[in-house]
Simulated scan of single mutants.
Amino acid sequence: MTVNKEIGMRRHIRLAAAAAALSAVLATGAAAQQFTMKFGTATPKGDQNFWMEEFKKAVEARAGGRIAIKLFPASQLGAIPRQIEGLQLGTVEAWIGPTSFLTGVESRYQVMDAPGLFADWDHAQRTVTHESFRDEFLNLGEKKGVIGIGIYTSNPMSVVSRKIPIRKVEDFRGQKFRVLGSALEVEQMRALGAAGVPMPLVETLPALQRGGIDGVRSGIVVFVPFKYWTISRQLTEIGDAYIVPVAFVSVRWWKTLPQDLRQIMLEEARKLDDAAYKYARKQHQLFRGLWTKNGGELIDFPEAERKKLLELSRDVGAKVAARNAGVKAAYDKLVAAAGATRQ
């Protein structure tokens, strides 16, 4: 064999080996299919944002590069109704927020707005994560195109009013309050002599500034990041109910994922039930300090007034639930879980 032939043969062998290696890389890349998860929420910062950020870190670390989770806080994917429509259509893969906003999709989600079910914040958390309630509740919307993968309690309900500060139950009378979105919340406002006006978060502050509404029922986790103290300096924590966010995913998108990737997500989401709750508790204290630091007044609703409020709205949950058999079944499940976890 001549020197030139030997050199040519060696070159051919090297090229063949390189081609084989490239084919193996391409085959591996094809097998490790890439998925994208656009994850939205309405808040610019807070416990919902913490949930998304921690979920992204944990899932991407375990998924080995198979999924890219892209976060869109502060309604960057559109107002809440548009994001929920995206979930159903599969154009938005995930969203986290209070279940009240999905009552137009699945009416049973509104049971979480029932007042007076929980003795305190800890009791609310034990209830919504209880084995007799959690998974069944998260799956209520599956036939409507959405399912939940995580749940926790965020904040006690609070109110701000630009018209009359809420220091007693009578102060609610005659005022229009923005509520999250459920018929149950509207009914409760009616029981207190007020009007409940469902409204997306991005529309709420401008409506309050214009006088289209007199006040807002939500949590301090919303009032501080959006600087509500510029409109109303008085914030009253009434604690008749708790904001309960759920991390929802699109069923259309979820079904395209391999089983092991779904399992990773479910496991990491369950871990965040407790982690997000603990984060919310700590941040609640921070936000209380920021409210007063910026000139706001925190009104602790007197216990006598809170009892009066709960007495007036005691039957609201059962009354609204009785209108629909499915809602009643979900409400009864929640009441039973609250009873099982009461200490």
Rank of each mutant, 00 (worst) to 15 (best):
G8M: 14
L15K: 13
A24T: 15
L26W: 12
A31V: 15
Q34N: 13
T43G: 02
T43V: 11
G46A: 11
Q48F: 09
A58R: 08
V59P: 02
A63L: 07
A68G: 09
F72V: 07
I80H: 00
I80E: 06
P81S: 09
E85L: 13
G86S: 05
L89K: 15
G90I: 05
G90K: 05
G90Y: 05
S100R: 07
F101T: 08
T103K: 04
S107C: 07
A114G: 07
G116M: 05
A124T: 06
R126I: 10
E131Y: 06
F133H: 01
L138A: 09
K143R: 15
V146Y: 01
G148F: 01
Y152V: 00
K163S: 06
K163L: 08
K168V: 02
K168W: 07
D171S: 02
G174W: 08
Q175W: 05
K176W: 03
K176L: 07
R178V: 13
L180C: 06
L184I: 10
A194T: 05
P198K: 09
M199L: 12
L201G: 06
Q209W: 11
G212K: 08
G215P: 04
G219M: 04
V221S: 10
I231W: 13
I231M: 14
S232E: 07
R233F: 06
I238Y: 07
G239I: 01
D240E: 13
A241M: 09
I243T: 12
V249L: 12
V251G: 02
K255L: 11
T256L: 10
L257Y: 03
P258R: 09
D260N: 08
Q263D: 14
Q263P: 03
I264G: 01
L266I: 12
E267F: 06
K271R: 14
D274N: 13
A275R: 14
A276D: 06
A276R: 00
Y277P: 00
H284Y: 10
Q285M: 03
L286N: 08
L290D: 03
T292G: 04
N294G: 08
G295Q: 12
L309R: 00
S313P: 07
A318P: 00
A322G: 12
N324V: 04
N324C: 10
V327Y: 00
A329D: 06
A330Q: 08
K333H: 11
A337Q: 02
A338F: 00
G339H: 12
A340G: 03
